[in-house]
Design a protein around this nucleic acid. Structure first.
Length: 273
DNA sequence: TCCTATGTTGTATG
DNA sequence: ACATACAACATAGG
């Protein structure tokens, strides 16, 4: 479910817990979301620690804790990825975990809950003075100055034979873009999702760059704020409707599996070249 | 019963 | 080695 802006929204749900001590915690240590993570270490450090701050980068979230059981200068670095069905919620202090609540941080006034039915999400934990590699090595934010047209052009050339839809889903270059955002971007840019990445001319690369930024910015403005639905002028509100209509051309939208994902486009607007 | 799902990753193939 | 395609992961809902 969550892409860039939805992840930012979920991250904010734990804001009331920042600056607050974690008194106790409950986890399902065998849940698949903890694959590769030392859950005993996570519990040992975080119990009694104080959550200091949080941050998102693409679909990744980071919560930094201090004052846990470890070296005095260390921090606890808790990484959260929501997968397909994960979400973060705020519950009451005496909240009893439900079936799919795999991580619950109990504080004096609230409980911070991570739920994930399908278990495609992931929890990471590291202890140390500096951000762990799994966080520090993430690619630059698409709304930052570090993400440039040249960077986009180089990546498209390298992935030249793959359909653009598949390429936009690659988190190593487009952190936060997911299935609906990729379709929204290509629809706005009037580029067919099957178009080969290496086939775009300079003008189309610039258009694609602009629409990547616009969709990221607008999604953050509308969805990350309070989970509002985007306006009907977006493809977003029409893409799953039966017999959905393109809000720009009025023609029927088309669907197919591209890059392994259900893809929606407007045939009048987006033609293979 | 069968199909779908806003994601990632391991493995096979070119 | 590098790029691409796709099954697999696990659960719920239509």
């Amino acid at each position: 479910m969550p892409e860039l802006a939805e992840v930012a929204y979920f991250c904010k749900q734990w804001n009331p817990g920042l600056g607050q001590r974690i008194d106790r915690m409950l986890i399902h240590p065998k849940a698949r979301v903890f694959r590769g993570t030392d859950t005993a270490h996570l519990v040992r450090y975080l119990t009694g620690a104080t959550l200091e701050r949080s941050e998102t980068r693409g679909k990744q979230m980071l919560f930094v804790a201090k004052g846990g059981k470890g070296k005095a200068k260390d921090c606890g670095w808790l990484g959260v990825h929501l997968g397909m069905t994960g979400e973060l919620r705020l519950e009451t202090a005496d909240y009893e975990p439900a079936k799919h609540d795999h991580l619950v941080l109990h504080q004096a006034k609230h409980s911070l809950v991570f739920e994930d039915a399908r278990l495609f999400g992931r929890i990471l934990f590291s202890e140390g003075m500096d951000a762990p590699a799994w966080w520090a090595k993430l690619p630059p934010d698409l709304l930052s100055k570090e993400f440039t047209v040249k960077m986009l052009a180089d990546f498209l050339r390298r992935r030249g034979r793959a359909p653009l839809k598949a390429v936009l889903l690659m988190q190593e270059r487009f952190p936060g873009i997911g299935n609906w955002m990729a379709d929204e971007i290509l629809w706005r840019a009037a580029i067919h999702p099957r178009q080969a990445a290496g086939s775009l001319d300079t003008a189309h690369v610039k258009t694609l760059y602009r629409e990547i930024r616009t969709v990221c910015r607008e999604a953050m403005r509308v969805i990350a704020k309070d989970w509002s639905d985007p306006p009907d002028s977006w493809l977003f509100n029409h893409r799953w409707e039966k017999g959905g209509i393109c809000p720009r051309t009025g023609a029927k939208l088309q669907h197919a599996t591209i890059g392994g994902r259900t893809t929606c486009w407007s045939p009048e607007r987006q033609k293979l070249e």
